[in-house]
Design a protein around this nucleic acid. Structure first.
Lengths: 134, 134
DNA sequence: TCTTGACCTTCCAGTTACTGTAAGGTCTAC
DNA sequence: GTAGACCTTACAGTAACTGGAAGGTCAAGA
């Protein structure tokens, strides 16, 4: 399999796949006689794993740890579980934060005329309690 | 007011304030005889505005646009309103995405023993449909 | 007066996780 | 033989800061 096929199947870009190889996140791909990278299903699986982990909110370092757990034949599920639960907590915090942001934004929009005039609560809201701006 | 005071009152760091000046997001601060940056309430207000906008999820370019709307005496509230509503939509998408991620994580954790053995659905789940990894 | 510590300054390098671009090699089809 | 779609490496750039070095300034205390 060539790199663009792996990209298609994993949802990563070819750039990203080469980048992951470059930083040692995955083993270097084997090469064909023409020097092109060749991938098997195992490599594809690892890249899919990484794409999925990233998508779910793990950063590269965390994804690397998970991938190591996966590759480790004597893998410790307790470790994986605590990583995942920790990440779930982080996601909840992020969700709450985004909800708050959205409430602020919707409240702003609701109190804004939306016509061509200058009367808009949005800008005043963002300006906050600091008094008039220059 | 010196920069550290402004930092304290705005919630930005001194580094960030200098950075915002460097990239032209705010006008260069006036300087005292010693060369130190001097701020008035107007400058503080602008920086608070930016801190708030960033906090609410606008990136620097969007924040810059909002700040310009604020400074523009003939400001167009419709523009501000559409920016805010668009951002709110983006936030909703992000929130939905995070909810999905969290469901995946929680599902993984639920199906994982959590003991020291290798039987853990988390890693298999992340590996997805790609078959066994190398 | 000297010194200490907390400020302030500029400049340059590093961070994360890529993305873009250039310059060139390879392969397949017409 | 040539066009177009692949592939390669290498280097630079992105956002939005952050850290650190090297040094100037200022107020308080011995």
């Amino acid at each position: 399999m060539q790199i663009s096929e792996v990209a298609r199947l994993s949802g990563l870009t070819t750039k990203t796949i080469r980048y992951y190889e470059e930083i040692g996140l995955v083993d270097p791909a084997s090469r064909g006689v023409n020097g092109y990278r060749q991938y098997d299903v195992g490599s594809l699986g690892q890249l899919r794993f990484l794409a999925r982990a990233r998508d779910v909110g793990f950063n590269l370092e965390e994804s690397r740890q998970l991938l190591e757990l996966l590759r480790d034949s004597g893998r410790q599920s307790a470790h994986a579980r605590s990583l995942v639960l920790e990440k779930s907590d982080q996601l909840q915090k992020k969700i709450d934060q985004l909800h708050d942001m959205q409430a602020v934004l919707n409240n702003m929009a609701r109190r804004c005329n939306g016509d061509e005039g200058p009367e808009c609560a949005i800008l005043d809201e963002l300006a906050g309690q600091a008094g008039p701006l220059s």
